[in-house]
Design a protein around this nucleic acid. Structure first.
Lengths: 226, 226
DNA sequence: CCCGCTTTACTTGTATGGAAGTATGGCGTA
DNA sequence: TACGCCATACTTCCATACAAGTAAAGCGGG
């Protein structure tokens, strides 16, 4: 049984409990639909129910848990609708962003992106799922930053949480090579200064989920809700 | 036999406190930066501090309040960056949505939009700010629904809360006539089956805030944070 | 066996007391 | 007057006790 190694007084207890659970949920360590209990978690980390309860409230606000009064608290199932909505929003936003980047792309940026692609190839070769996911995020974040809107990416983080859970839970079924090729196509379109092609490449990339999701939902129906 | 799901035993105290404060904040009844107090609110509504505290936590998660440990809880100032990010996201998403609508527009939809425009003109003539804002939301929501993605609009609600506060606080400085003309232009472009023009009209409409925001922030600097 | 009631062991929700931290006003001192 | 220290009155945070509701096991009667 893993638990936070120690409670540091730097941050509040509730915050630390929240961080701990948030991380475990996103990584799929806590399965969707699984039962949580204020008293049980409190016992595991050695605090009272109160901070645990407050962590639950925040998790609920983030769409990662669901508390049914007098019944129990449960890890939220992944809402297919929410994932599809988040995907559509991502496509719309990142399409606009990639056009902005295309208008101001520089050799320095292209060099940075090339370097990130190389790191992704390396992580893919190592079959290291966590690194690959982190590098994928970094790639998209770099583009947002290059467009001068890194803050937009931060705002989207909340919406992406459901997608992130999906990625962790089903990471091994994803075709890393295909994603890599799509990233490469985006960078090449930028290098050629071809805004339309860059946008289309980005849209194609972000639509990949539409083909993967049905299969994933079929494999693990107990993890999903409509 | 279970009770119908929509019959809930009057929601929890914490929920009611949250709803009450949420509404007051969005309407600008509670000014940004104003001080809140667990004990004070608890006394006002006649409950203990605990549910009030939990309402504060949820408000914080929604970006509407800020709790500084051992110092106090305050109505969150409106983040200019968050508003701009939300605006950019809205423009990107609604641009995509309006293109989808344009591909499937029907006489019935056009009739519905015409009717909503008429209602907006009427509310504008009455100078009824609340109705005008509600009808504006309804207009955009109708378009999202017509695109087959009403759920996307729901997801964006959270991001829009900061924009909504802005609208309420400064509603009287907005040029209702201009917004009405822009809405009309969008509908006309749809009626002509001109997708590009519809998208451009939508983008222009949603960029209105970019010119308004600086003036608003100059008038009420104490309401904003960078 | 099967149905239905009752008991019991849970769950989350609320109230309250105290712990820890922060800001402020008052007071003494130079 | 100006400065530094300190008591005091706040604040949020955490722990604990109890209240209210749910669900399921147990048990008796048909």
């Amino acid at each position: 049984m893993d638990q936070p190694s120690f409670i540091v007084p730097s941050s509040s207890t509730a915050q630390q409990v929240y961080d701990w659970l948030h991380d475990r949920i996103l990584r799929g360590d806590l399965a969707p639909g699984a039962r949580l209990s204020e008293t049980e978690i409190a016992g595991q980390v050695g605090v009272s129910r109160q901070p645990v309860r407050e962590a639950f409230i925040r998790l609920t606000a983030a769409g990662l848990a669901e508390v049914r009064p007098q019944r129990g608290t449960f890890i939220g199932r992944i809402s297919v609708g929410a994932v599809l909505s988040a995907r559509l929003i991502r496509e719309a936003v990142e399409s606009d962003l990639i056009r902005m980047v295309s208008a101001t792309t520089s050799p320095a940026l292209l060099a940075q992106l090339d370097q990130q692609l190389e790191a992704q190839r390396e992580a893919s070769a190592r079959q290291h799922v966590e690194d690959f996911i982190a590098l994928d995020d970094q790639f998209h974040r770099s583009l947002a930053k290059a467009a001068g809107h890194a803050d937009v990416w931060d705002v989207l983080e909340g919406l992406k949480s459901q997608m992130n859970r999906l990625r962790y839970i089903t990471a091994r079924v994803f075709d890393h090579q295909k994603l890599l090729d799509q990233h490469t196509a985006i960078v090449e379109a930028l290098r050629d200064g071809h805004a339309d092609r860059a946008e289309q490449a980005m849209r194609l990339h972000l639509r990949e989920l539409l083909t993967d999701l049905p299969e994933i939902a079929r494999n693990k129906p107990e993890f999903f809700t409509k």
